Computed example of a mutant assay.
Amino acid sequence: MREETPKKPKPEKMIVGRRERVSFPELDLEEIEAKIDTGAYTSAIHCSDIHEETLPNGTNVISLDLLDPSHPKYNHRKLTFSDYTFRDIKSSNGEVQQRYVIRTKIKFFEEEIEAEFSLSDRSDMKYPVLIGRTLLRGRFIVDVSRKNVGKKTNIKQKKNLL
């Protein structure tokens, strides 16, 4: 007779709304509005001037501006990443596009999660950040009737501490 190993209790899933405020600590980007999109597989972040460069030491990097000058959170910092991939990503209109993908930390509620983000020009979209189902899976339940649940949760937690 085989002994069953006890199952680890599944962590409780948090409820998120259709839009949430998120931060990217490694990218120096705080409290930016993100659209929660269960139809999207990969999360995405708005970038402009995305291009590949070769550094003098021979290392390939991608260089980009996070957001664009018209966005209120634009910080005029050119970012470079040496750890990235180039993949086919299906856009919202069903078109397959090749995009750079990076891994970075996102702060969602009070939790920091390392996740993949495709880099794309989202200037024609309402929200600069899209949270896809890969990041959501196993962690969150989406309540489309709500928005900015994380902000309300943080305010409630701070009041309880006082």
Rank of each mutant, 00 (worst) to 15 (best):
V22D: 04
Q98M: 11
E26R: 14
D28C: 02
F108N: 04
F140C: 02
S43D: 03
I62G: 12
F117E: 04
L135T: 00
R146S: 10
D28L: 13
P128R: 14
E114S: 10
A40D: 06
G39I: 07
R2P: 12
E114A: 11
K78C: 06
K78A: 03
D68N: 12
S63L: 06
K152M: 14
I131W: 00
P6H: 05
F140W: 09
S91P: 09
T54G: 08
I155A: 14
Y84A: 07
S120I: 13
E53F: 07
P56Q: 09
N75C: 09
I89C: 06
V61G: 07
E52P: 10
R103N: 12
T104F: 01
G138Q: 04
K78S: 08
R133T: 11
S23W: 00
T59A: 14
R19N: 09
S82F: 02
S43L: 00
E30V: 03
S70T: 10
T85G: 03
S91N: 11
N57G: 13
K126P: 09
I113N: 10
P6F: 08
H51R: 15
E12F: 06
S23F: 02
L162N: 15
K156I: 11
F109A: 03
H46W: 06
E20Y: 05
N60E: 07
V149H: 13
T5Y: 11
K152S: 12
V96S: 09
V16P: 02
N154V: 11
I155R: 15
T104P: 00
A44Q: 08
V149D: 06
R87Q: 09
